[in-house]
Computed example of a mutant assay.
Amino acid sequence: MIQDFSSLDRFEAERPRLRALAYRMLGSSAEADDAVQEAWLRFDRTDLSQVENLAAWLTTVVSRVCLNLLRTRQTRHEESLESFTSDWLGAADDDRIPQEEAELADSVGLAMLVVLDRLSPAERIAFVLHDMFDVPFDDIAHMMERNPAAVRQLASRARAKVRGTGAQAADPARRRHAVEAYLTATRTGDFEALLTLLDPEVELRADATVTGAGRPLTLQGALAVARSAIEAVPRARFTAVALVDGGPALVMAPLGRLSLVIQFTFAGTAMTAIDITADPDRLQAFDVTLG
Protein backbone atom coordinates (compact mmCIF):
# COMPACT_ATOMS: atom_id res chain seq x y z
CA MET A 1 0.00 0.00 0.00
CA ILE A 2 1.38 3.42 -0.96
CA GLN A 3 0.40 6.26 1.32
CA ASP A 4 -0.60 9.63 -0.12
CA PHE A 5 1.87 12.49 -0.19
CA SER A 6 0.39 14.17 2.87
CA SER A 7 0.99 10.99 4.90
CA LEU A 8 4.52 10.71 3.56
CA ASP A 9 5.19 14.29 4.59
CA ARG A 10 3.86 13.51 8.06
CA PHE A 11 6.25 10.57 8.36
CA GLU A 12 9.21 12.67 7.25
CA ALA A 13 8.22 15.31 9.80
CA GLU A 14 8.42 12.63 12.50
CA ARG A 15 11.68 11.07 11.28
CA PRO A 16 14.12 13.26 13.30
CA ARG A 17 12.25 12.58 16.54
CA LEU A 18 11.99 8.87 15.82
CA ARG A 19 15.71 8.66 15.03
CA ALA A 20 16.61 10.51 18.23
CA LEU A 21 14.39 8.13 20.18
CA ALA A 22 15.86 5.02 18.53
CA TYR A 23 19.44 6.23 19.04
CA ARG A 24 18.93 6.65 22.78
CA MET A 25 17.39 3.22 22.97
CA LEU A 26 20.05 1.48 20.89
CA GLY A 27 23.20 3.61 21.20
CA SER A 28 24.08 3.08 17.53
CA SER A 29 23.26 5.40 14.64
CA ALA A 30 23.22 2.48 12.17
CA GLU A 31 20.78 0.48 14.29
CA ALA A 32 18.68 3.59 14.88
CA ASP A 33 18.42 4.10 11.12
CA ASP A 34 17.42 0.45 10.71
CA ALA A 35 14.69 0.84 13.34
CA VAL A 36 13.29 3.95 11.66
CA GLN A 37 13.44 2.23 8.27
CA GLU A 38 11.47 -0.69 9.69
CA ALA A 39 8.90 1.81 10.99
CA TRP A 40 8.71 3.29 7.51
CA LEU A 41 8.08 -0.14 5.96
CA ARG A 42 5.30 -0.84 8.44
CA PHE A 43 3.89 2.64 7.83
CA ASP A 44 3.92 2.07 4.08
CA ARG A 45 2.00 -1.20 4.23
CA THR A 46 -0.53 -0.27 6.91
CA ASP A 47 -3.96 1.26 6.44
CA LEU A 48 -3.71 4.31 8.68
CA SER A 49 -7.23 5.57 8.13
CA GLN A 50 -8.18 4.49 11.65
CA VAL A 51 -5.02 5.86 13.29
CA GLU A 52 -5.96 9.00 15.20
CA ASN A 53 -2.48 9.88 16.49
CA LEU A 54 0.23 9.10 13.94
CA ALA A 55 3.06 10.32 16.18
CA ALA A 56 2.02 7.94 18.97
CA TRP A 57 1.56 5.07 16.51
CA LEU A 58 5.06 5.59 15.09
CA THR A 59 6.53 5.88 18.58
CA THR A 60 4.98 2.53 19.45
CA VAL A 61 6.34 0.89 16.31
CA VAL A 62 9.88 2.21 16.80
CA SER A 63 9.86 1.33 20.51
CA ARG A 64 8.82 -2.25 19.83
CA VAL A 65 11.42 -2.61 17.07
CA CYS A 66 14.10 -1.30 19.42
CA LEU A 67 12.99 -3.57 22.25
CA ASN A 68 13.25 -6.59 19.95
CA LEU A 69 16.72 -5.50 18.79
CA LEU A 70 17.90 -5.05 22.37
CA ARG A 71 16.57 -8.47 23.35
CA THR A 72 18.23 -10.07 20.34
CA ARG A 73 21.51 -8.37 21.17
CA GLN A 74 21.30 -9.55 24.77
CA THR A 75 20.29 -13.13 23.93
CA ARG A 76 22.60 -13.90 21.04
CA HIS A 77 25.61 -11.90 22.24
CA GLU A 78 26.28 -11.08 18.60
CA GLU A 79 29.08 -8.68 19.56
CA SER A 80 31.49 -10.06 22.13
CA LEU A 81 32.72 -7.36 24.49
CA GLU A 82 36.29 -8.54 24.00
CA SER A 83 36.33 -8.03 20.23
CA PHE A 84 34.42 -4.78 20.57
CA THR A 85 36.94 -3.43 23.06
CA SER A 86 40.02 -4.25 21.01
CA ASP A 87 38.48 -3.11 17.73
CA TRP A 88 37.32 0.24 19.03
CA LEU A 89 40.45 1.02 21.02
CA GLY A 90 42.29 0.85 17.72
CA ALA A 91 39.57 2.71 15.86
CA ALA A 92 39.70 5.58 18.31
CA ASP A 93 43.48 5.83 17.97
CA ASP A 94 43.17 5.85 14.18
CA ASP A 95 40.22 8.28 14.24
CA ARG A 96 38.12 5.82 12.21
CA ILE A 97 34.88 6.25 14.15
CA PRO A 98 32.28 7.91 11.90
CA GLN A 99 31.93 11.64 12.53
CA GLU A 100 28.14 11.39 12.73
CA GLU A 101 28.43 8.69 15.39
CA ALA A 102 30.70 10.91 17.47
CA GLU A 103 28.38 13.89 17.11
CA LEU A 104 25.35 11.85 18.15
CA ALA A 105 27.21 10.52 21.18
CA ASP A 106 28.18 14.08 22.13
CA SER A 107 24.55 15.19 21.86
CA VAL A 108 23.38 12.54 24.31
CA GLY A 109 26.49 12.28 26.48
CA LEU A 110 28.96 9.41 26.45
CA ALA A 111 28.50 8.71 30.14
CA MET A 112 24.73 8.52 29.66
CA LEU A 113 25.14 6.04 26.80
CA VAL A 114 27.43 3.88 28.93
CA VAL A 115 24.88 3.81 31.77
CA LEU A 116 21.98 3.14 29.40
CA ASP A 117 23.92 0.20 27.96
CA ARG A 118 23.98 -1.35 31.47
CA LEU A 119 20.17 -1.41 31.73
CA SER A 120 18.03 -4.37 30.76
CA PRO A 121 16.13 -3.91 27.46
CA ALA A 122 12.83 -3.26 29.25
CA GLU A 123 14.42 -0.82 31.72
CA ARG A 124 16.10 1.07 28.92
CA ILE A 125 12.90 1.40 26.88
CA ALA A 126 10.86 2.54 29.90
CA PHE A 127 13.49 5.04 31.05
CA VAL A 128 14.13 6.55 27.62
CA LEU A 129 10.46 6.92 26.80
CA HIS A 130 9.41 8.37 30.15
CA ASP A 131 12.41 10.26 31.49
CA MET A 132 13.91 11.45 28.20
CA PHE A 133 10.84 11.81 25.96
CA ASP A 134 8.11 12.45 28.53
CA VAL A 135 5.83 9.64 27.32
CA PRO A 136 3.13 8.81 29.92
CA PHE A 137 3.39 5.47 31.71
CA ASP A 138 -0.02 4.38 30.43
CA ASP A 139 1.15 4.82 26.83
CA ILE A 140 4.41 3.00 27.52
CA ALA A 141 2.49 0.15 29.11
CA HIS A 142 0.50 -0.24 25.89
CA MET A 143 3.69 -0.20 23.78
CA MET A 144 5.43 -2.77 25.97
CA GLU A 145 2.29 -4.86 26.59
CA ARG A 146 2.68 -4.56 30.37
CA ASN A 147 0.61 -2.92 33.06
CA PRO A 148 1.42 0.69 34.09
CA ALA A 149 2.61 -0.35 37.56
CA ALA A 150 5.18 -2.70 36.06
CA VAL A 151 6.42 0.02 33.71
CA ARG A 152 6.72 2.49 36.60
CA GLN A 153 8.84 -0.07 38.43
CA LEU A 154 11.06 -0.58 35.39
CA ALA A 155 11.64 3.16 35.04
CA SER A 156 12.28 3.51 38.76
CA ARG A 157 14.91 0.76 38.73
CA ALA A 158 16.54 2.30 35.67
CA ARG A 159 16.55 5.75 37.28
CA ALA A 160 18.28 4.36 40.38
CA LYS A 161 20.96 2.72 38.22
CA VAL A 162 21.47 5.89 36.17
CA ARG A 163 21.80 8.18 39.16
CA GLY A 164 23.60 5.77 41.46
CA THR A 165 23.27 5.53 45.21
CA GLY A 166 26.83 4.73 46.30
CA ALA A 167 28.69 7.09 48.60
CA GLN A 168 31.64 8.98 47.16
CA ALA A 169 34.97 9.66 48.78
CA ALA A 170 35.54 12.81 50.79
CA ASP A 171 35.73 16.05 48.83
CA PRO A 172 34.06 14.55 45.71
CA ALA A 173 33.44 17.91 44.00
CA ARG A 174 37.11 18.89 43.99
CA ARG A 175 38.18 15.46 42.81
CA ARG A 176 35.61 15.41 40.03
CA HIS A 177 36.85 18.85 38.99
CA ALA A 178 40.41 17.44 38.88
CA VAL A 179 39.28 14.54 36.67
CA GLU A 180 37.47 16.97 34.36
CA ALA A 181 40.62 19.10 34.19
CA TYR A 182 42.69 16.00 33.36
CA LEU A 183 40.34 15.17 30.48
CA THR A 184 40.43 18.75 29.18
CA ALA A 185 44.23 18.85 29.33
CA THR A 186 44.44 15.51 27.54
CA ARG A 187 42.07 16.65 24.79
CA THR A 188 43.97 19.89 24.21
CA GLY A 189 47.46 18.45 24.64
CA ASP A 190 48.19 20.79 27.55
CA PHE A 191 51.28 19.16 29.05
CA GLU A 192 51.80 21.83 31.73
CA ALA A 193 48.21 21.54 32.95
CA LEU A 194 48.62 17.78 33.32
CA LEU A 195 51.74 18.25 35.43
CA THR A 196 49.84 20.50 37.84
CA LEU A 197 47.30 17.72 38.42
CA LEU A 198 49.76 14.86 38.93
CA ASP A 199 51.72 13.99 42.03
CA PRO A 200 55.46 13.95 41.14
CA GLU A 201 55.59 10.23 42.05
CA VAL A 202 52.34 9.28 40.32
CA GLU A 203 52.10 5.71 39.02
CA LEU A 204 50.08 4.73 35.95
CA ARG A 205 49.01 1.09 35.54
CA ALA A 206 47.40 -0.18 32.32
CA ASP A 207 46.19 -3.74 31.85
CA ALA A 208 47.27 -6.06 29.04
CA THR A 209 44.16 -5.33 26.94
CA VAL A 210 45.04 -1.64 26.89
CA THR A 211 48.60 -2.23 25.74
CA GLY A 212 47.72 -4.93 23.23
CA ALA A 213 51.10 -6.50 23.98
CA GLY A 214 49.89 -9.35 26.19
CA ARG A 215 51.28 -7.81 29.35
CA PRO A 216 50.37 -4.84 31.57
CA LEU A 217 52.25 -1.55 31.58
CA THR A 218 53.44 0.54 34.51
CA LEU A 219 54.75 4.11 34.24
CA GLN A 220 56.34 6.04 37.09
CA GLY A 221 56.58 9.79 37.56
CA ALA A 222 54.59 12.82 36.40
CA LEU A 223 56.63 13.44 33.24
CA ALA A 224 56.16 9.91 31.90
CA VAL A 225 52.46 9.81 32.79
CA ALA A 226 51.78 13.22 31.25
CA ARG A 227 53.51 12.20 28.01
CA SER A 228 51.40 9.05 27.90
CA ALA A 229 48.22 11.09 28.33
CA ILE A 230 49.18 13.43 25.49
CA GLU A 231 49.73 10.43 23.20
CA ALA A 232 46.14 9.33 23.93
CA VAL A 233 44.55 12.51 22.49
CA PRO A 234 42.54 10.62 19.79
CA ARG A 235 40.97 8.43 22.47
CA ALA A 236 40.14 11.44 24.64
CA ARG A 237 37.60 12.53 22.05
CA PHE A 238 35.42 9.55 22.96
CA THR A 239 35.92 9.83 26.72
CA ALA A 240 33.71 11.36 29.40
CA VAL A 241 33.57 11.81 33.16
CA ALA A 242 31.37 9.41 35.14
CA LEU A 243 31.23 7.78 38.55
CA VAL A 244 32.85 4.35 38.55
CA ASP A 245 32.38 2.35 41.74
CA GLY A 246 31.41 5.61 43.45
CA GLY A 247 34.45 7.69 42.48
CA PRO A 248 35.04 10.21 39.66
CA ALA A 249 36.65 8.48 36.69
CA LEU A 250 36.86 8.59 32.92
CA VAL A 251 35.01 6.20 30.63
CA MET A 252 35.80 5.65 26.97
CA ALA A 253 32.76 4.59 25.02
CA PRO A 254 32.78 4.63 21.20
CA LEU A 255 29.25 3.84 20.02
CA GLY A 256 28.11 4.06 23.63
CA ARG A 257 29.73 0.74 24.59
CA LEU A 258 32.14 0.86 27.51
CA SER A 259 35.61 -0.04 26.24
CA LEU A 260 37.98 1.54 28.75
CA VAL A 261 37.90 2.95 32.30
CA ILE A 262 40.46 5.30 33.84
CA GLN A 263 40.33 5.49 37.64
CA PHE A 264 42.27 7.88 39.85
CA THR A 265 43.71 7.67 43.35
CA PHE A 266 44.18 10.97 45.16
CA ALA A 267 46.16 12.47 47.98
CA GLY A 268 44.12 15.60 48.56
CA THR A 269 43.46 16.68 44.98
CA ALA A 270 46.78 15.45 43.56
CA MET A 271 46.59 12.28 41.47
CA THR A 272 48.90 9.66 42.95
CA ALA A 273 47.83 6.67 40.85
CA ILE A 274 45.99 6.11 37.58
CA ASP A 275 44.56 2.70 36.70
CA ILE A 276 43.47 2.04 33.11
CA THR A 277 41.26 -0.98 32.49
CA ALA A 278 40.05 -2.48 29.21
CA ASP A 279 39.75 -6.14 30.22
CA PRO A 280 36.18 -7.15 29.24
CA ASP A 281 35.42 -9.11 32.41
CA ARG A 282 36.58 -6.27 34.65
CA LEU A 283 34.64 -3.71 32.62
CA GLN A 284 31.46 -5.71 33.13
CA ALA A 285 31.97 -5.65 36.90
CA PHE A 286 32.24 -1.88 37.23
CA ASP A 287 29.32 0.09 38.67
CA VAL A 288 29.03 3.09 36.31
CA THR A 289 26.61 5.94 37.08
CA LEU A 290 26.22 9.59 36.17
CA GLY A 291 26.49 10.84 39.76
Rank of each mutant, 00 (worst) to 15 (best):
V65T: 12
D279A: 10
L110G: 12
P98L: 09
A105I: 10
R76K: 13
L8P: 00
L197M: 05
L18A: 11
P234F: 07
A178F: 02
A222T: 02
A105G: 06
V251R: 03
R76I: 14
F286K: 05
M271P: 00
R96N: 12
G268C: 14
N147H: 12
R257E: 12
E14C: 15
R124D: 07
A20V: 06
W40C: 07
T211V: 09
A253N: 02
V114G: 00
E123D: 10
M271A: 13
H177V: 15
F127N: 02
L204W: 09
Q37N: 15
V179H: 07
L54Q: 08
D44F: 11
G90R: 10
T46H: 11
V65S: 01
V162N: 00
D106A: 12
T269E: 03
T269V: 14
L70D: 02
A158L: 00
L250C: 03
V135D: 08
D106Q: 14
R118C: 11
A242W: 04
R146P: 07
D190A: 07
V162G: 05
W40K: 06
G247A: 14
R174Y: 05
A185G: 06
R163G: 11
F43C: 01
D93W: 08
D93S: 15
Q168I: 12
V251A: 07
T265A: 15
E31D: 06
G291Q: 03
S107L: 13
A222K: 08
G109V: 03
T289Q: 00
R71G: 02
L154I: 04
L67P: 09
D33S: 14
V288H: 00
G164H: 08
A32E: 07
